[in-house]
């Protein structure tokens, strides 16, 4: 096994524990929204994208219909377009193999694999996704069976897990002072767009702040 892949496995463990908490609240909310435990678990296994799963189940559960729920979930995933283009030159093999390696792009793995110079350690990225996938699916199992007895997971403060998860990843990026200004700009663009665009779009649009890289 590649040394980077092993380092990735280890680096992914803390994020998999946090992911467990996050997917547990997903499991609870999905069951409360009218999904069966099996549906919640299968969804985590085949989608494995937190924000998309929360958005799509909330909309379908509220009677929003099939197309709007799939669209909202896909929009939450739109950031993976930017992340996929970013890692593309660091992947190896033919189109099929690259497409498969691209499936291991999840936010923590992508951020951990970032080498700061525009390149990515693909072995580390793939390794870091393995424990996170296990944590994600098992957390959903726990949440789905807690389901209706758990009450509102927000009451237990579990909604804070998601932003703190991303804040920890962001903090590592901000150790480079050149990142701070653009991060702030991205945050402001995203907040400014929230009232005017569907959820998911503000994050993708914030990516335009990275264009200041053209001037450097």
């Amino acid at each position: 096994m590649d040394a980077s892949f092993r380092r990735g496995l280890r680096a992914g463990v803390p994020f998999s524990l946090v992911g467990f908490l996050l997917s547990m609240s997903f499991g609870v909310l999905a069951v409360q929204a009218g999904f069966s435990a099996l549906q919640a678990i299968v969804m985590s296994a085949v989608v494995h994208a937190g924000s998309a799963q929360f958005a799509a189940t909330a909309i379908l559960g509220a009677g929003g219909g099939l197309v709007p729920s799939v669209l909202a979930g896909s929009l939450m995933n739109a950031r993976f377009l930017a992340m996929g283009i970013a890692v593309a030159p660091s992947l190896r093999g033919g189109p099929g193999r690259r497409a498969l390696q691209g499936q291991t792009v999840v936010d923590p793995s992508w951020a951990l694999a970032n080498q700061g110079d525009g390149s990515f350690d693909r072995q580390l990225m793939m390794g870091a996704t393995v424990p996170q996938y296990a944590g994600w699916v098992s957390g959903t199992v726990a949440g789905a069976f807690l389901g209706d007895v758990a009450g509102d997971p927000d009451r237990f403060g579990l909604d804070v897990v998601f932003p703190v998860f991303f804040l920890a990843l962001l903090a590592a990026e901000l150790r480079d002072p050149r990142s701070r200004g653009v991060a702030l700009a991205g945050a402001l663009i995203a907040l400014a767009l929230v009232p005017f665009t569907p959820p998911g779009v503000p994050v993708l649009a914030a990516g335009t702040a990275a264009l200041v890289g053209l001037a450097r």
Binding site: S51, R79, A82, M83, I85, A86, D107, W110, A111, N114, G116, D117, G118, S119, F162, P163, F166, L167, L169, L170, E173, L174, D176, S179, R180, V182, A183, L184, A185, G186, A187, I189, A190, L191, V194, P199, P202, V203, A206, G207, A209, A210, L211, V212, G213, L214, R216
Partner: peptide, 19 residues
């Protein structure tokens, strides 16, 4: 490549504030 190097802090910051 320079633009890509700035994407992680930007996207993560946007995720933190929107969530």
């Amino acid at each position: 490549v320079k633009v890509i190097a700035l994407l992680p802090p930007v996207l993560l910051a946007a995720l933190v504030v929107t969530s």
